[in-house]
Amino acid sequence: MAATLTKAKRRKPSNFGQDNLVGYLFIGPWLAAFFLFTLIPIAVSLVLSFTDYNVLSNSGDFIGLDNFQRMFFEDRRYARSVNATLKYVVFAVPLRLVFALGVAMLLNTWRRGVGVYRAAFYAPSIVGGSIAVAVMWREIFGNDGLVNFTLNLLGIEGPNWLGRPETAIWTLIILAAWQFGSPMLIFLAGLKNIPRHLYESAEIDGANAFQRFLRITLPMLTPIIFFNLIMQLISGFMVFTQAFIVTQGKPLDTTLFYALYVYRRAFELNEMGYASAMAWVMLMVIALLTALVFRSSSYWVHYESDEGPA
């Protein structure tokens, strides 16, 4: 089994010739939308990051690298927002992925009622960002909310989750882990795409469930794991809504996520120049990390075809 997979991986590049016309035809819609709607705002925000542009005065002067100097050396809240964001990414991203994959495996069966379970596990991911949701999460982590009630049953006295600087960010991390619905669905779709005959022949070979998981499921799923990892990484760095509606960055800026701080600067204080500079620093950091993950992918991601943009 392992041998056939390796062989597939080593397959020489297929006999597709280069075809510029067809290629651009297919990605044409994206290119059109990019040039029409995306390029200008992105370019403008890059230019603004070197200015002190203020939204209300609708003007700004070029100030060189002042914005960057300010954010790295003068702005104490900036450092805190970096801190909070990194902590969130380090814990929430792996947690979400592990939950998502675990539950997807659990739900990838033909048992009766699995559709209902799937809906139940996906449900927390669709509650969205309305004000009611903020009240709901506060209630759940409140002093006599569900979390502390459960801890109480186990004989543990729960902390004042949202009120303590040490625990507040954990409510958001748990919330993120709770809302693993989207990577879970993608994993499920990926599991569905694994040809059944691979499992059947493995079973004939006498592989047990764990071996099948290790030798078939995991390698066949690596393109999807790779995708989910990249996307969770990006969305982890850009996390906004949870802090925006639930904690507003409190207490003591321990949940002041980067994107929330960018938003505050941009729209509450109208400092769009400074906000743009912050956004571009984040873009570079995410891009660097993403590039690293892409680099590593040749060692662990298995494709059925070597075709692909990266």
């Binding site: 597709f16 297919f26 994206w30 990019f34 995306t38 850009m238 906004f240 960018v262 571009w280």
Partner: peptide, 29 residues
């Protein structure tokens, strides 16, 4: 499909740019 199965000049570049557009918060755009 274009990105995955057709080889054309600039494919890697456009793909990278496409991913980059995901990394800039909407708020500043």
């Amino acid at each position: 499909y274009g990105f995955a199965r057709v080889r054309f000049r600039g494919r890697r570049l456009w793909f990278a740019i496409m991913l980059l557009t995901l990394m800039l918060p909407t708020q500043v755009q």
